Structure formats: C-alpha cells, structure tokens
Amino acid sequence: MNRTLNEELIYEILSVVEEIPVGKVATYGQIAGLIGRERNARLIGRVLSMAEFYGRYPCHRVVNQAGRLAPGWKEQRGLLEGEGVPMKNETHVAIKLYQWEC
C-alpha cells in the first residue's frame, strides 16, 4: 500500500468527511478505518488541517475518540451546536449519543 500523502488520498479522506450527516460527528480513527488505514488517525487530522485548500468540507464534524474538539479551533463548538450537537462539557461532544453510525 502506498503510504505517500497525495491528492488522491486527500480527496479519499475528504469524500468520507463529506458524508458525515448534519447533527452527527465522526472520529479521526473512524475515518481512518473507513479508508482502510486503521492506524492512521493522525493522518486524518493532518489532512483536515489543510482541507480549506481543497474546498468546503464539514471538518467541524470530526472529533477525537473521546469526543474532544480540535484544540485551538474555537469555531468548531459553535458550528456543531448550530447543527444540534450538544456539548458534554466545554471541550467535548456527547460522542456516544451523536457518533455517526456508518
């Protein structure tokens, strides 16, 4: 399997992110598993950090396995709450209730 980060892989990741429904969240690891790279959750985060260069994608719907929001991205919380995803606390969504079941 080619481990190089290329445009094809970037669009594969972003196409999965694009499928996350409004009002749901997915984890970095979940997306990695969906593209057959179960051990590459950090790769997903890296791609999402530069997604703005490839178009508009709902990257705000991706959180870590505990439901924690991306550190330093203050707008993420408001975007999720605007879609009906409540917060468990200041930095976490209720992942067990709002995780995308794909």
Rank of each mutant, 00 (worst) to 15 (best):
E12F: 00
E8H: 08
V16T: 14
N40C: 13
Y98R: 12
H60D: 03
N2A: 02
N6K: 05
A41G: 12
R56C: 03
L80Y: 06
I13E: 08
A70S: 12
Y98K: 09
Q65L: 04
E7W: 02
L80I: 04
R56K: 14
M50E: 15
M1P: 14
R37Q: 13
K96D: 15
G36A: 04
L43Y: 05
E7H: 01
Q65M: 05
E18G: 01
N40A: 15
G67R: 00
E101P: 06
E19C: 05
V62D: 11
E19G: 05
T27A: 04
V25A: 05
E18M: 06
S15T: 09
N2H: 03
A51V: 10
Y98T: 12
S15Q: 11
G36C: 09
G82F: 00
Q99D: 09
M87N: 12
L43E: 14
S49V: 04
E19K: 15
Y54G: 10
I10P: 09
Q99K: 15
K88F: 14
Y28L: 09
T4Y: 00
P58S: 00
E38Q: 07
V47R: 06
I10C: 07
G72R: 01
M50W: 09
A66K: 06
E81P: 10
I20W: 03
R61Q: 11
Y57P: 01
L80M: 07
L97M: 12
Y98V: 15
L43N: 11
P71T: 07
E81N: 03
S49G: 15
Y11W: 11
Q99C: 08
V22D: 04
A94P: 00
V16F: 06
P21M: 12
F53Y: 11
E19M: 11
G23T: 09
E12Y: 01
A41F: 13
L79A: 10
L43C: 12
V62H: 06
I31S: 02
A94Y: 10
G33S: 14
V47T: 12
R61L: 10
E12T: 08
V85C: 02
G84R: 02
E8D: 14
R3T: 09
E83N: 10
T91R: 14
R42E: 11
M1S: 13
V93A: 01
E81W: 03
N64T: 07
V47Y: 13
I95L: 11
E101F: 06
E8V: 11
A66C: 07
